[in-house]
Design a protein around this nucleic acid. Sequence first.
DNA 1: GCCAGTTAAACAACAGTGTTTCCTAAGTGC
DNA 2: GCACTTAGGAAACACTGTTGTTTAACTGGC
Lengths: 374, 374
Amino acid sequence: MGPMTTHPGPTGTNLAGLRDHNAALVLGLLRAAPEGGSRVGLAARTGLTPQAIGKITARLLAEGMIEEAGQSASTGGKPRTMLRLRAEAACAVGVHLERDELTVLLVDLTGRRLHRCTRPVDEGIAPDDAVRLVAEEIRRAAEALPAGARLLGAGIGCRGPLDHAAGVLHWFTPAGPRGSSAWHHYPLRDELAARLDGLPVVVDKDTNTAALGEAPATPRPGGGLAYVHLAAGLGAGLLLDGALHRGTRTNAGEFGHQTVQVDGPLCACGNHGCLEVLCLAALERGDHAAAARLIGVGVANLVRLLDIDRVVLGGRAVLAAPDTYLDGVTAQLKARIPDPEWQPVPVTLAAAGHLAVAAGAAELVLGPLFGRRT
Amino acid sequence: MGPMTTHPGPTGTNLAGLRDHNAALVLGLLRAAPEGGSRVGLAARTGLTPQAIGKITARLLAEGMIEEAGQSASTGGKPRTMLRLRAEAACAVGVHLERDELTVLLVDLTGRRLHRCTRPVDEGIAPDDAVRLVAEEIRRAAEALPAGARLLGAGIGCRGPLDHAAGVLHWFTPAGPRGSSAWHHYPLRDELAARLDGLPVVVDKDTNTAALGEAPATPRPGGGLAYVHLAAGLGAGLLLDGALHRGTRTNAGEFGHQTVQVDGPLCACGNHGCLEVLCLAALERGDHAAAARLIGVGVANLVRLLDIDRVVLGGRAVLAAPDTYLDGVTAQLKARIPDPEWQPVPVTLAAAGHLAVAAGAAELVLGPLFGRRT
DNA sequence: GCCAGTTAAACAACAGTGTTTCCTAAGTGC
DNA sequence: GCACTTAGGAAACACTGTTGTTTAACTGGC
């Protein structure tokens, strides 16, 4: 088969993989329906036979991942036994590591928050000290674990660029323009895992985790969600067909550096007429309305290019004037996509507010359990 | 499990699905290596045991999908028996239905062209007459089927908007701006299938099929390819992580209607400063270099937003001055993405030239056989 | 030329998946 | 009370990839 390639490439599946796939599917369907679901309903949704569902649910019950929850009303025969996720079976930690702040969440299987901590961080902190701090806060969060609950892992959301697959940061300086820094090529994932006795750690861009946190429980096939984040910079997280689109270098989502003015002003990135440079200029003037209009232009581009279903806005600047951004983006979308082929695309604010990134980071860990592609 | 929803949603897998998945994986790996591959190599690439590969290849050999092809050189022991796709085991038809032209290809499992026909079509043709014509040409193409080869189906690439899942066109007029027409809501897939004795038919946008035709044999995980098509309009096909990204309404790829000049001229779509309106204006002046520069701006936006690995250019206008577009887009990409994080993204011309859409349409049918997500 | 060592591939028995078939449990409605 | 309907489990089954063993085929040293 020729020489070994570096790409793992597609992978074969065996019985264990088949079992895990179907179990994840069932768990995913139960998570999507907070009131729970019946065996019969699961069989219909998965296409599996009722017997198969019986065996799968028996396994999950034995493992303590799900529990029976009463019966539904009869429809002329034996009433269905309802099943629901056992929220306290397992937990995950979600971390938002910002330049000046650290947020650590502990959430259960259903995403409910069991612990929350936000504390300031010195902007000039050394990587090793930051990791020590994060590990310490994760340990503290783990004290809130329900009895018998497993801790599945920790997801970290922080600014890019970074390498998601390797868990390595590509920050050039802690907080500024180009230049070497201790953070460049820093192996955040492995360093943190080492300090937490090998706890699984996943690292991703803040915009990506925030998008993940807004993901619908049951994604529409082929559907897309864009999370747009305006703070010190302007970026986006793209959730396409239920999975984050990161690109091979984890660099996807450079929303702010799209050209919207061919001969516009020079941007720090070296390009002319970037959305970000125009948007930040508006912000400096305190003109949130103008910033919102500009973002709306970029969002319209995004929606048309990717046939996006839903747009979510977040980030400090947005949270400073939420309605201005909501209205401004919505208006631009409507004005710039008059075509009736495109029914109005809903624009909302990040439901988790300031916790959007951390909550989504936990989903980095929980998602695979419920069959989310990574 | 609550009321029935219209979305099929995620689906469970059984042993048959497991078998088909692994068989498709093996076929895909063999297709990617034209010289063939060994059982041992397949085991290493799939992660399956040599025994499993032995059983899978035995099945495929019995079905006539693959064949043994000599032995590789020994590395100190028994030499490996090479396996390769049996190209003549099955074929697919690829169709490019344009306003004024019809192209029909017959390709075998390896994508080799066994038959080709291009003929003019009356622009005002009625849908039923067009379907009759296409069916007739597909029948003629099928005469070139090798003895014993199965015809797997026909893929149709045509301009949008359309509904891929339903196989229904949403053309408002045969060739112009808004207004009702016999083509609107025309069920192309079902009409054509009915005339071809239930032959599987798949319909997709021309830009999508062309992108598919350029897809790498072994996609990089998370990788992306953008096919940019410049003809009467400007569109793109997006291949993300090995699968076409269509969006829920098959409307993804509206590359031409991204705003690149916030207060630019009015476009036919109702927006201001669309890339397409600027680009078509340049074309009317006969200024291909300016059109290429503009496309380069849009491509840079695309590359940064999606972390695209490769850009492919095609369409009549591009083929009229290929080097101008190649150079212009490459130069803009380089100028507008100076960041070293982004190594240069290769820009190429569609390898299949004028046949790009038809060749990719055949891949709509062949792809699933080799494990491509749809 | 022969034999040990090595690699490829098949044979046989096995574990475990969802499926099929059958039966029991638990409701509704006349 | 009884026929009917629906939910769910038990047992046998078909078929998947896996494990353990054997055979085939080539290299290389003596």
